[in-house]
Amino acid sequence: MEHPDRPALSIDDLTVAYQEKPAIWDIDLDVPEGVLMAIVGPNGAGKSTLIKAALNLIPRAAGSVSFSGLPYERARSLVAYVPQRGSVDWDFPTSVLDVVTMGLYGKLGWFRRPGPSERELALGALEQVGLADFAERQISQLSGGQQQRTFLARALVQDAQIYFMDEPFAAVDAVTENAIVNILRQLNQRGKTVLVVHHDLQTVAEYFDWVTLLNVEVIAAGPTSEVFTLENLQKTYGGRVSYLHGGQLMTASAP
């Protein structure tokens, strides 16, 4: 893995608070270009908060974030975001193709409407996630995994440099999980940077080459092989960790 001088994402002294209680606290994090990174930590560790603060979706109490050296306002076209599946109303009257086309709205700017070329791009993204047959379907008819893939297609169509994904693997079927992994790897091969909030410790080493362990503060960040150790996990989860590693059950408990 290369480590270019200018990281794809650079977070400097970032603090975010909800009602003056810190959710993440004085975080410094550099994510090198081209890595496939998992953000791992217990519930309430601030994983989603970290992503949302980086994307300017929630106010920061202190600190700064830059994308390839640019502030967010100038780096918008470099960034794509896959929110949690549960964050929207899936009974909204719209089709799968339409949702994917929404990924292009940001590029269109005010007033302009999507046209045939946007439709082509959206269909291409649906093809990639295996939902081309579903383009005209109403979104309420999708299964959970298909919803997740629709969201993924919406991010793909943005053709960004950095992808933020909030728990894309939460409660999806095996086919979808495989599809997402495939796409993550394709993005990785094309030199994109991908940040994924991830819950499943079992698959971290298999899916990701970079990992950040987070619990309000960054406990450790770096290549999975170096950072994803039992000791670090114990620090992150405060004891009581057990997971399968190479077919072997690893258990740690608080000292």
Partner: peptide, 10 residues
Amino acid sequence: MLEAHNMPGV
């Protein structure tokens, strides 16, 4: 603070 954050369900 960190103890408060290790409470489950937060």
